[in-house]
Design a protein around this nucleic acid. Structure first.
Lengths: 226, 226
DNA sequence: ACCTGAACACCGTTCAAGT
DNA sequence: ACCTGAACACCGTTCAAGT
């Protein structure tokens, strides 16, 4: 009787010593952005790298440490506008747009940020830049601090809302189900919603333009009138 | 040799037919709020109910359906202010505060909302109420729709930011580590951040007051001047 | 109809072993 | 030092069985 070979995963083995933290993080970002965070497993990561599951543990203590490192790396790629503009308000606007762009282009960054704990050294360059600009618009120290946090909260919430909606609409027949629900709305009980349903659907689809509308409103309300 | 009894989990069995969807959802909310979403497992839920793991499946198709039902139930508990006030702007403010309060009092609601897909019939009463008030302030239909979404985005982002921070600060020595990081900040490289560190820490701790500061700013920028 | 325990296919991680 | 496979303690869920 011939001894059958054990079933081997059809995986090209990477040569020894070809692994390193950077290659691991590249693969992690790829998987996260392509398949979403729930599909990001240590086994999938190793598979992507062409390596045994436990090889990654030689470079990172565990999954938490990888999540941390991915978040750090992504936050560092936020594109900032050139400094020294005459108008701190519009420069501030550009910084916020840069943060928003990262989160919508890398949905994984957002999900990671909602999962892992806050660290003191996240995106310090961005924070410093925003605080400086807020001070230059004439805000007092405590007002500038509050304005910064509130702007980041809106930016994160806006990106999260958008990602969630786009993920949901990808599902089979989601668009039709949503429309059917809106059409079946009892206009007597929810008059305003029934009347504004088309406008709501339209506004939801505006994406970045909608974010900017809210951002401009918030800046108008936050910054001193000049 | 005496036959040893199999190891039984020390769980009081609930009497037959005592289970129902409401009791299941009560237990789910309890676990979610007390131990956080990562500790909310089907096995823990059954244990809490004093029942075998699979009993819950007689009432819900699976965990997703339970998540959905919990989110629905929590969104329905949002407290709305009495209607018919003369000032739609301040009534709108109250509605937003109500939404914020739900999310900070039930962190689980927020986490569920970021996980599960958007459904058309989430908190319709709240949406209808907000849209009506926005129209009464004098906004055009498309402006009201945009304002509503943007206000919800800020509210969700603000609550998420706060929950995240409070969860992180619960961890052992987190406060000290954060302070150490802020003290070690190179003031030459990050002058604005180094100067405003105390104000930032203070503002982060303000909680609801900080949310309201941002909400008022956003409403100022959003609503027509009267 | 309501509820059970065993089993299956996953997951992150520990451990002893191989090069 | 770098990497491996087996094993452990989890997870959600399927299934056949019991009442």
């Amino acid at each position: 009787m011939s001894v059958s070979q054990p079933v081997r995963p059809p995986r090209r083995r990477a040569p020894r010593n070809s692994l390193n933290p950077d290659r691991i993080l590249d693969a992690a970002v790829l998987l996260l952005d392509r398949d979403g965070p729930e599909a990001f497993t240590m086994r999938a990561l190793a598979e992507q790298l062409g390596v045994g599951t436990m090889a990654v543990y030689s470079y990172f203590k565990g999954k938490d440490e990888i999540n941390d490192a991915v978040a750090q790396r992504l936050l560092d790629t936020i594109e900032l506008p050139p400094g020294g503009s005459a108008d701190p308000g519009s420069e501030l606007r550009e910084v916020c747009r840069g943060v928003y762009r990262l989160f919508t282009e890398h949905p994984s960054a957002l999900q990671l940020l909602t999962l892992r704990a806050v660290r003191g050294d996240d995106a310090i360059i961005v924070i410093d830049r925003m605080l400086g600009l807020l001070r230059r618009t004439g805000l007092a120290p405590d007002e500038a601090a509050r304005a910064h946090i509130v702007l980041m909260q809106y930016t994160v919430g806006s990106a999260l809302w958008r990602i969630r909606r786009e993920r949901a609409l990808c599902e089979e027949g989601a668009r039709e189900r949503l429309r059917a629900k809106l059409d079946a709305l009892p206009a007597g009980r929810y008059p305003a919603l029934a009347a504004l349903a088309p406008e709501l659907m339209c506004a939801q689809g505006e994406g970045t333009a909608l974010y900017e509308a809210g951002l401009d409103a918030m800046l108008r309300g936050l910054l001193p009138v000049r």
